[in-house]
Design a protein around this nucleic acid. Structure first.
Lengths: 214, 214, 214, 214
DNA sequence: CATGAATGAGTCTTCATTCAT
DNA sequence: GATGAATGAAGACTCATTCAT
């Protein structure tokens, strides 16, 4: 309950900050304000703890993307996918960094599971891109390269965005969307983005992903 | 001589594969074919070993970028910077992954040093982008966001590119350059890239960065 | 509780017997009847363990000396200081040998602390000697040389005294007091010492310094 | 030859400063300006190196004491023994500290040998004291206690004497002799010491024990 | 519910020493 | 005569985990 949550929060922070192998259970216990023995009341092994964090994060991202990225015109879908992805990475950087960076720390069975979720997520992006190319609105030579490029560039946000910087998360999402649509070769200048999209995406992230989720 | 190099090579592989904290001294010794005590005949501390790898990698990247990214029109500079970056990341993925992922494993003094090199590298990109915007050939709202997006997307190559896949490294570089120029808002369709650029960049990387560099 | 004390006792014995650097963690664990890992449940670092022993020993000696060596005539003060010192060194030879011999094993900050205690202790002796010279009862050319000579000679007891030898600790203290007063140039033959002094000093040492103190 | 001497000198300094167990062969090599492998051209094991230093030091001390402490009146013998001992400890503090402090670092066979030398040395003192008591010039209740007290107090010099302090080594020796004769209960005030004794003792130490002996 | 106690296996690093060249 | 290479054993200390209470 209370303590269980503190353990997750501690793990989230430390795994994001120092990496899985750079974090000891003593560190976790101290950050959570518990003894190491008590820690084991609220968790399985250290690796399971990591897997839970990654699973729930990837799950939420997948849900959000499913809601916004399946229906509609390719441009709209990509726009909303970028918004959700960027907002999630800017607003929940700890979760996303752990998912992005610590896959290799998982042993094969758990790694396979998380990679499965990630692949489903990437397939939503791939479909939107492929559809856009088929529709003639995106102009690309290699759509899978574009997908990877797009995802990598948007994920970077979690590594450097600071909420007290010059850009709000919504502005960030808007900038990245412009870059993404440019990258995809959408003809003509990208029009000003409807701020309603950012608002919706933000609400979605906040709803699925409570600030103190761990 | 011989053994010293094997140690570096082992560290390069393992740090890239499992991360610094995920790699034990015993792992290094085994991979290098030495006893752990002998290992210390050829290295300082494990951290110094990491720092050496990062320093030399970042150094080479910086040299290459300085040669191709300082003079000429902004479009040409970005084109060549992307080529060098992508080729380096595709052809030397171990080095680049270590530099990209293990900064946090360094203690402050060494981290500061390596970050200094990285910052000088990024400034070359930033200058090219800013110049392109000033010249009216790039169309962007936030050039620093674009720089980060560009670098992140290009660096991703080191994580997924396989030389036995459908694309050659030169083709990869070409595709990424198209995406980059699109992203930067270069007007009109990107023309077919001069393959001489790829050839030059490849030669530069290979020259500065011998295949077995460690 | 129990084990914690065994660790201290083991350290006391081994540090006194083999010196700090001559004692390994494994030796300590074996002597305490614990595994090396368990050892660390009850101690900080090996150096902190040494410092604790030295601190408590020096502290007790300082307390005892403060009680008997501040008030009264110089001859009486020196008499009681010698008694306390000799009794402590004869009855607690492990503690005193560690304090006397292992100062150099401490890193600077801890060393400074312990030396501070020792200096306060020596100042009590110095004051008694200086007062005796001023009163004309001691006849000396260099009182600081006398202080050092006195302390060194009395400390030697911890290195050779055996309780199963021909002299009791009280007799030892009496002999050393005679030597000390002679050394200080007290005129005339030293009279037979009041055995009450030895009894009091012995009681003081035993009270402050329980036999199994560690 | 040259290098062999540097090794001995390095060992002398470091063993005195940090103790045998606190000194590594790497430290020795560095101080001697040699590689560790080269070190072994000029020495046997680390322990043998220690034993050599102790043996030669104890030997020289024994020779000196034999020359001055066997013949003559007890008062004169003690006077000269104290002079030699104090001068040796003040002028060759490294040697004497190693002999005094590192006996326990020797394994039994070597320890037995060195202790044999020390015992012969102490027997010279004991004889002088006993003779003085028999002659009625010393007044003591326990002559062996006095011997130990005397030796301990005089040996302390090696731990604190600094040649740039207020007292010359000859003055030191004079002060200690006064204290020693007082301690031994020599009746009446100790007369001013003949400075020729100090000069002779100093010459003897210097002659037997060249400054750079190692 | 919570934790102090306990540990085998591991961490990185240094030890004193040998030996081929 | 001198040393780079090499190492098994040991150095101090931490690891993630279990369990009795």
């Amino acid at each position: 309950m209370e303590a269980r949550h503190r353990v997750r929060a501690a793990a989230l922070e430390l795994f994001a900050e120092r990496g899985f192998h750079g974090t000891g259970i003593r560190d976790l216990a101290q950050r959570a304000g518990l003894s190491t023995a008590t820690l084991y009341h609220y968790m399985g092994t250290k690796e399971e703890l990591l897997a839970e964090i990654m699973r729930s994060s990837m799950d939420l991202l997948l849900q959000a993307a499913t809601r916004v990225g399946v229906q509609g015109a390719a441009v709209d879908r990509v726009t909303r996918l970028v918004h959700v992805h960027v907002l999630a990475h800017a607003a929940r950087p700890l979760h996303t960094r752990v998912v992005d960076d610590e896959l290799r720390a998982l042993s094969p069975p758990l790694r396979v599971e998380i990679i499965g979720l990630r692949d489903r997520y990437e397939r939503l992006w791939q479909a939107a891109i492929t559809d856009g190319v088929a529709d003639g609105v995106f102009h690309l030579r290699a759509s899978d390269v574009a997908r990877r490029a797009l995802l990598e560039m948007c994920s970077g946000v979690a590594r450097w965005y600071r909420p007290d910087g010059p850009l709000s998360v919504e502005q960030m999402a808007a900038r990245y969307t412009e870059l993404a649509l440019n990258l995809l070769g959408v003809a003509g200048p990208v029009p000003d983005l409807d701020t309603a999209i950012a608002r919706d995406a933000h609400r979605l992230v906040a709803e699925l992903w409570p600030e103190d989720a761990a």
